[in-house]
Simulated assay, not measured.
Amino acid sequence: MDDAGVFDLLDLGEYERTALAELLTLGRTTAPNLAEATGIPKARIYGVLEALADRGFVKVIPGRPKEYQPRSPEAILDRAAENRRQAYESFSADLDAARESFLAEFGPRFTAASEDIRPAEELFYVVDVGEASESETRRLYHEADERVNVLTKSFEYLDSVAPALADALDRGVEVNVLFLHPDLLSATNRGIQTEIVERIDEEFPGVGYRFSEEKLPWRGTLVDPSMEYETGRAILLVEEKDVPLSMRQAAITENGSFVAGLKRYFDLVWEHDSVATYPE
């Protein structure tokens, strides 16, 4: 992470980060000197320095005139972490104080409204394909207890889920990927798939994979299906060649019966309509 990224984590405004960076270079100095060195308006410099002092990043040295001295870089980072910890504890305490009245007010409303929801409306909710769908997919990997099954053309989004995939494998989760057979792919997607398969062999040897010899009508990820229809979650999208990816949506379900059906489809293709080795 570069310096700008660290200042972003410190949640500093433009003048504040400019002043702090210059102070770390100059050391102890006065407000007018710092304003001249940074170009920060003199009408703003005192407020900027007081804000930095309030956060514990700068020490105020009494005198005529007052001087300002930065704390060490290590101390600044430690103070930032402590500030965030204290803010979280305060936030958590405020939530706890409001919890009883909030639940009393809205719990009955939610229960009454939920009783009126038709079963079909509980089957799915949708998110946009892209960052939103990838975020939901990562969540499924992180929450999986036993198994993850993936249906994909070439698994081109591996980069976005790789840390979550590694986490699942580290926790002993079984991960199996059903690719579309390369003979059914375009030349571009075939090349992507080849690279992804090589990467899986090298970085994620615990992942099982096969290649479907039939077209896959849907793509997606399902986790922890139960043939008793009691558990299971999935995200999926159907093949829509004429719809741009940016305009498509993915369906998310936590309906155990539906996920069990998706698992049966996955198992049938895996066992009867796929090959185990990457075609030469």
Rank of each mutant, 00 (worst) to 15 (best):
200 I>E: 14
158 L>H: 13
100 E>R: 12
151 L>M: 14
3 D>C: 10
197 V>W: 12
257 S>E: 15
11 D>Q: 12
233 R>L: 15
236 L>N: 03
64 R>W: 06
37 A>D: 02
24 L>W: 12
104 A>E: 00
234 A>M: 04
54 D>K: 05
137 T>V: 03
214 E>I: 08
133 S>N: 01
222 L>F: 10
168 A>C: 03
188 T>N: 08
103 L>W: 00
106 F>D: 01
201 D>K: 15
168 A>Q: 07
266 F>L: 00
141 Y>S: 15
122 E>L: 05
86 Q>A: 09
194 T>M: 15
62 P>I: 01
271 E>S: 14
4 A>C: 06
135 S>N: 08
114 S>C: 13
264 R>T: 11
182 P>M: 06
13 G>H: 10
111 T>V: 09
64 R>H: 07
140 L>Y: 07
94 D>Q: 11
23 L>G: 04
242 D>C: 02
182 P>T: 01
237 L>G: 02
86 Q>T: 15
249 Q>W: 12
144 A>H: 09
144 A>N: 03
261 G>I: 07
266 F>A: 00
142 H>R: 08
271 E>Q: 13
249 Q>P: 04
181 H>E: 01
109 R>Y: 01
265 Y>K: 02
112 A>Q: 08
61 I>C: 03
279 P>T: 02
188 T>Q: 07
280 E>M: 11
62 P>C: 13
88 Y>F: 12
102 F>E: 05
144 A>P: 13
129 V>K: 04
9 L>D: 12
85 R>Y: 05
146 E>P: 13
43 A>D: 14
194 T>A: 06
14 E>A: 03
22 E>Q: 15
136 E>N: 11
31 A>K: 02
164 A>T: 01
170 D>H: 03
223 V>I: 15
153 K>S: 05
78 D>R: 03
6 V>S: 03
82 E>K: 04
204 F>A: 12
123 L>T: 06
182 P>Q: 00
65 P>T: 02
266 F>W: 00
92 S>F: 05
19 A>P: 09
4 A>F: 11
126 V>Y: 15
